[in-house]
Structures are given as structure tokens and as C-alpha cells.
């Protein structure tokens, strides 16, 4: 055999080798790996399919877009509806037809065309001071703009995805003009310039800088699990806003299959696994989020808070008003 032939043979073997390599599925994730790794490990244990992950806080949708048909990514995981709709709008995802997914995930938390699926939900709730806020005093998002809250509210940046989603929901419910009035009122009631993440807002309530913090529900559980932060969270009561009106605003963490997925079968298996009992339970227990699968029991903490009315606004609408919401935050100088 001449040298050229042997080189070609080796190359051919390598190609075959990679093509029929071990079963795997590739994930681009906006979620921190330490949150999803346990789920993937459970999946690998059950199916023998290996899960490969790249995590980044931004840029993965662009990477997927540029890599095009040759992209190795099968699935994309996000922590809010916004990124999912970015991927949909850029035509980077494909519909997944699966009776398992449609059975496990309520219609409100998946795309009508099956382009994306929610995995967990988190509520945007109030953490109010046990000492300085009377029961029943804090009731709705709308009321946060009223003068009685002057100098008493802490939030993170108005342009963080969680804040933006809430503002977008306000736009969807009340129109842009009303939403602007509301955001201006809320801004005027802030105790300090928006800063830090949701944990930092609870800390500020504990320290007496403000009386009410706007936070995502799962932070409460996470903070309880931390020696130091448990003290902060012990100083607050949890309030689910808008129970008498539109319901509490929720967002999802979700997933979608890429249009170019090289391992669609494995990807579908992973999606179905993640919507199933075991994974939903791990997910909810570990990060204190609400499982989207209604059959899966809540963790003890979530149960102790009780059932609540969820805002039934379609998530797609929230995604649609995102840009308008950011511009509003700029306009009222929310972060100044």
C-alpha cells in the first residue's frame, strides 16, 4: 500500500470513527452548568447518551446562527423566554412533535407550533420586611407606583431580563402609556439606585435600606440553603402579587431543538426526559423552581407557600414587548 493510500484509509477510518462514536447530544446553555449537570448525569445514567455542554451568558444564539447547518449543537437552553424567542426569530430552531412533551408540559408553557418548551417556571414575587410591612399592605405590581411606597422599594437593574419581562407584561396588560406611568412611579419609589442581583435586594431589606424587594421566587430557597443568606431571608415575608387581578407574573427556563441538530433523536429523548417526573423533581428541588409538569409534586418550601394564581398572559407576548420595555427603562431613567 503506498503512503497516500494509507493516509486516506486512516482519514476514512477517522471519519467513520467520529460518525459512529458513542451516543451523544450537544447543548448550548445559558443556564449555569452547576444547575443542570445533575440532570444530565441522571439522563446519561438512564440512557447511556452522553451530554456535552457549552455554557455562556451571551452570544450562543449568534454562534449557532453563524455555524449554520454544520453546527454541532442539538439543543439550546435558556433562562427566560426572551432568548428562546431570539432563536425562534432567527429561524434557528425546529418543531419537535412528541406526545410525551405535549402531555407533560401545559400549553401555556410551550410554543403553539412546538418550537420551544418550558422546563420550569419562576414567579416574580415580593420579599417584604416582616417588621415594616403589614400583612395585606403589598398587593400588586401596579400598587408599587403609589406614593405610600416612596423610598421603600429595592430592585435590580431595570434592564435585566427579569425586570424587562415584568415591564413587558405590564405593557401587554395596560398598554405602553400606562406602563410608562407605572415604571416612572416605581422608579420614584426606589430606595436606592438599582444594583446587585435579587439576593442583594433581600439583603437590603434585612439591613433596613428598603421594605420591599422584587425578586424571583427560587432565590428564596437558594438563600435559605446558604448559612449567611438564610439570615437575610428570615427577615422577609413572601407575597405573591396580583392575586385579585391578573395573577403573578411568571417566566420560564426553557429549551428548543436547533434546526441543524445532528442528533435529533437523542435530543428529543433528552427533552422528554427533562419534562418527566424524575428530572422535573430534581430541577424543582435543586433550584427551588416550579416544575412545568403539573403531575410532579412541589418541593416542601414551594408547598408551604401554597398555590397561587398565575398570570395567563402568553409568554410570546412578553417576548414581543421586550424591546419596548428596555426603551421604557431608558426613557424613565430607571437605572440612573
Amino acid at each position: 500500500m503506498n503512503p497516500l493510500h494509507s493516509v486516506l484509509l486512516v482519514a476514512a477510518l477517522l471519519c467513520v470513527g467520529t460518525a459512529s462514536a458513542e451516543q451523544e447530544v450537544n447543548v448550548y446553555s445559558y443556564r449555569q452548568p452547576f444547575l443542570i449537570r445533575p440532570l444530565f448525569d441522571a439522563f446519561t445514567k438512564e440512557t447511556g447518551i452522553k451530554v456535552n455542554v457549552v455554557f455562556a451568558e451571551e452570544g450562543l444564539v449568534e454562534r449557532l446562527k453563524r455555524e449554520g447547518a454544520n453546527s454541532p449543537a442539538d439543543l439550546i437552553f435558556t433562562v427566560d423566554i426572551g432568548r428562546l424567542s431570539d432563536a425562534v426569530e432567527a429561524d434557528l430552531v425546529q418543531p419537535v412533535q412528541s406526545p410525551v412533551l405535549t402531555a407533560n408540559i401545559p400549553a401555556q408553557f410551550r410554543d403553539p407550533g412546538n418550537l420551544w418548551f418550558g422546563l420550569t417556571t419562576r414567579a416574580r414575587i415580593f420579599a417584604v420586611s416582616k417588621e415594616r410591612v403589614a400583612p395585606g399592605e403589598a398587593t400588586s405590581y401596579e400598587a408599587l407606583a403609589e406614593p405610600q411606597w416612596k423610598g421603600r422599594i429595592c430592585t435590580r437593574s431595570g434592564k435585566h431580563v427579569y425586570s424587562v419581562a415584568l415591564t413587558a407584561a405590564m405593557i401587554a396588560h395596560h398598554g405602553e402609556a400606562e406602563a410608562e406611568k407605572w415604571l416612572t412611579g416605581l422608579k420614584n419609589n426606589l430606595a436606592r439606585r438599582p444594583q446587585g442581583n435579587d439576593r442583594a435586594q433581600v439583603k437590603a431589606v434585612k439591613e433596613g435600606q428598603c421594605d420591599l424587594a422584587l425578586i424571583n421566587s427560587y432565590y428564596v430557597g437558594n438563600m435559605m440553603a446558604d448559612k449567611e443568606q438564610a439570615e437575610w431571608v428570615a427577615a422577609v415575608n413572601i407575597v405573591f402579587p396580583n392575586q385579585d387581578s391578573t395573577g403573578t407574573h411568571v417566566n420560564i427556563s426553557g429549551m428548543a431543538m436547533t434546526r441543524s441538530a445532528p442528533n435529533p433523536e437523542n435530543a428529543k429523548k433528552l427533552m422528554e426526559f427533562l419534562s418527566g417526573d424524575l428530572a422535573q423533581q430534581i430541577y424543582a428541588e435543586q433550584n427551588y423552581e416550579y416544575p412545568v409538569n403539573p403531575q410532579v409534586p412541589w418541593s416542601g418550601l414551594l408547598k408551604s407557600w401554597g398555590e397561587f394564581k398565575v398570570d395567563s398572559l402568553p409568554l410570546a407576548q412578553i417576548a414581543q414587548y421586550r424591546t419596548a420595555a428596555i426603551k421604557l427603562a431608558d426613557k424613565v431613567g430607571y437605572d440612573d
Binding site: E58, V161, P194, Q195, G196, K327, D335
Partner: peptide, 20 residues
């Protein structure tokens, strides 16, 4: 982290927030 709004912050808003 310090909530100091520089041009870079604006860049991120436009890119990630507005998808532009």
C-alpha cells in the same frame, strides 16, 4: 456589578435586550 452605566452597558442593552 457597580451599576455604573458606560457605553459598554448600552452596547449590551442594545444587543441582548433589544436583539439588535
Amino acid at each position: 456589578y457597580f451599576a455604573v452605566r458606560t457605553l459598554t452597558a448600552g452596547l449590551y442593552d442594545v444587543w441582548l435586550g433589544m436583539g439588535n
